[in-house]
């Protein structure tokens, strides 16, 4: 056996377990999910017949009905992305830049901002739930100091979605800051110096030097956080009183719908799988757009 062939054999040997794993645990189940979405799939029933795209037909019908909870779930999820993602990125960038200007205590601040990120979403959600309480929660205690009447936050459908968004933004902020900071530190000092020599003001430096050079980081975080908001689940379950994305479905998300339909009392996994296929298409589109964007980055 030649040396080259021996190495090829080694490669196959090394890949044996990982590739088997990916096929069994990732690729197979992906195809299986598509299959389930085409069936009337109740895990209890002996018969799980194909049903002529009935799950998708129902999904599109539900999406067309403005009062339907599935429609609400998609609407809410897009709202989370559109409110939460820009908020998180802009606050994160601001704090990263501030951290980049200061000379002392940087490590301390970094640690403090990172604490929520290493905490589980469940613990965070329950702590915030008590902070939001109408009569005795901290936020209302503070509002009272300023003479503002008690707010119901999570219990009021008009305030609940922003209230949930705030928790998620708060929790993920540390991560965004760290990534931005790493990006900022990768920008050579000479660029700033050159700009200053040219007499550029702070805003000019920010728009002409910082932002363009930070673009790869920005695109990365944009896509990552968009997908994270699209997949929101744990926070909503643990922040809403019945774990149902209430009140009146005002905080429910796509993934929560999947969970409820597939593992709730109706065990309607076919419909749940159909929703996940929809989610898959959305996320894949975003990923492909990102790949396009980053590739262009590499080219110039």
């Amino acid at each position: 056996m030649t040396l080259k062939n021996r190495r090829i054999l080694w490669a196959y040997l090394f890949l044996l377990i990982p590739l088997t794993f990916f096929i069994v645990v990732r690729t197979g189940p992906t195809l299986f999910a598509f299959d389930i979405s085409l069936r009337n799939y109740n895990p209890m029933a002996a018969d799980k017949p194909y049903n002529d795209f009935a799950n998708f037909a129902r999904l599109f019908k539900d999406l067309a009905d403005p009062d339907h909870v599935t429609r609400k779930a998609f609407e809410n999820t897009f709202k989370y992305v559109l409110i939460g993602m820009p908020l998180q990125l802009s606050i994160g960038l601001l704090f990263a830049m501030l951290l980049n200007t200061i000379r002392r205590l940087r490590t301390l601040y970094r640690v403090i901002y990172f604490i929520p990120f290493v905490t589980s979403a469940v613990a965070v959600a329950w702590v915030w739930r008590s902070l939001y309480m109408p009569d005795f929660g901290l936020f209302n205690l503070i509002l009272e100091l300023f003479g503002v009447p008690s707010q119901r936050f999570l219990l009021d459908p008009a305030q609940s979605l922003p209230s949930v968004t705030a928790v998620v933004v708060w929790q993920g902020l540390g991560y965004v800051i760290i990534i931005f900071l790493a990006g900022l530190q990768g920008i050579p000092e000479t660029f700033y110096e050159a700009a200053r020599v040219d007499g550029a003001n702070r805003w000019k430096i920010f728009t002409k030097v910082t932002l363009p050079l930070l673009n790869p980081t920005l695109v990365y975080l944009l896509v990552l956080q968009t997908i994270a908001f699209l997949r929101m689940f744990a926070e909503v379950v643990n922040l809403s009183r019945q774990g149902d994305g209430g009140p009146v479905n005002s905080t429910t998300t796509v993934v929560l719908r999947v969970f409820r339909e597939s593992f709730g009392s109706s065990l309607n996994m076919g419909y749940g799988a159909a929703i996940t296929v929809m989610l898959f298409v959305i996320i894949m589109t975003i990923s492909l757009v990102q790949m396009r964007l980053t590739q262009r980055q590499v080219e110039y």
Partner: peptide, 20 residues
């Protein structure tokens, strides 16, 4: 027929009145 869903329907109806 589905106790959980029937309860939820009335919870939602009540919330819709008092909150919305």
């Amino acid at each position: 027929v589905d106790e959980a869903k029937q309860r939820q329907a009335l919870i939602d109806a009540f919330d819709a009145v008092r909150l919305n």
